[in-house]
Computed example of a mutant assay.
Amino acid sequence: MDTAMPPGADELIYRDATEADVPALVELVESAYRGDSSRAGWTTEADILDGQRTDPEGVREVITSPGSRLLVVERAGTIVACCQLEHRGDAAYFGMFAVRPGLQGGGLGRRVLTAAERLAADAWGAREMHMTVISVREELIAWYERRGYRRTGRTSPFPYGDERFGLPRRDDLRFELLVKDLTGAPTAG
């Protein structure tokens, strides 16, 4: 019995999201960060936040906003990951990053992040990639640091009281800005 995958079955397809993708993308993001399903991966925020991570309106806004792209990653016709890219002058913002929980830890996230960095540099001439991460997510921040991102120490408040961002289970949440140089030059600090 031949158990080998057909040629190209493991190939990743990258494309821009469309409005038809909104329900599947909301489900993907929620599954990666909230509730019991998120515990199958390592990116869960279920211990620090309840409620939603995103909603159809938020995903639709990323898809339709000028200077913004929501990159969809498919394997064998199934959406397996996504990320937001937003053009901000010399920088690009990276967000709404989600990988199916059962596929986390196998290198897929690293491949998607690398592709997003290359796309931001090539399409927009971005010299830096910026992202914000909840500062108590030490394991996640360490993962980004291993990929060349540096902590800036610049923080912004968590939007307590705005249920669109979830229901905090603790009172010390804030976002920290992480930055990566995309030009290949060494970064200071």
Rank of each mutant, 00 (worst) to 15 (best):
Q84V: 00
R39K: 15
V29M: 14
G95Q: 07
F97A: 13
T64I: 03
D90I: 10
A20R: 12
S37M: 08
V80I: 09
T44L: 03
R75A: 07
A20P: 01
C83G: 07
V22I: 13
C82P: 08
G41T: 09
P23V: 01
D21Y: 04
T18R: 12
S31M: 11
G89P: 10
P66K: 09
F97Y: 15
E27G: 03
P23E: 01
E19P: 10
L70F: 15
V26R: 05
V72E: 02
L28P: 09
T44V: 08
I79E: 04
L70Y: 14
D21S: 05
D50N: 13
E57H: 13
S65R: 15
S65I: 01
P66T: 10
D55N: 15
D50K: 08
E27P: 00
E86N: 10
Q52I: 13
R75H: 02
R39S: 12
S37I: 03
L71A: 00
Q52T: 15
R75I: 01
L70H: 11
G89F: 10
I63K: 04
R60A: 15
V62S: 03
I48N: 10
G51D: 05
R39L: 15
A24H: 10
T18S: 12
P23S: 04
Q52M: 12
G35E: 03
T54H: 06
D47T: 14
H87C: 08
R88C: 06
G51S: 10
E30K: 02
E74K: 07
R53M: 10
S31I: 04
L25F: 05
E19L: 15
A20T: 06
F94G: 01
A40C: 01
V59W: 04
S68K: 08
A81H: 06
G58F: 02
S31E: 08
P66D: 13
I63A: 04
D55Y: 04
A20I: 00
A40K: 14
Y93G: 07
A20F: 02
E45T: 14
D50V: 07
E86I: 11
D90E: 14
I63Y: 06
L85Q: 07
A40P: 00
D47M: 08
L49I: 12
Y93E: 02
Y33H: 08
R75C: 09
D21C: 02
G89I: 08
V59C: 04
Y93V: 10
A76V: 05
L71H: 00
G89C: 09
Q52F: 00
T64E: 12
Y93W: 13
G95P: 12
A32C: 12
S37Y: 00
A40T: 12
S31H: 09
P66Y: 03
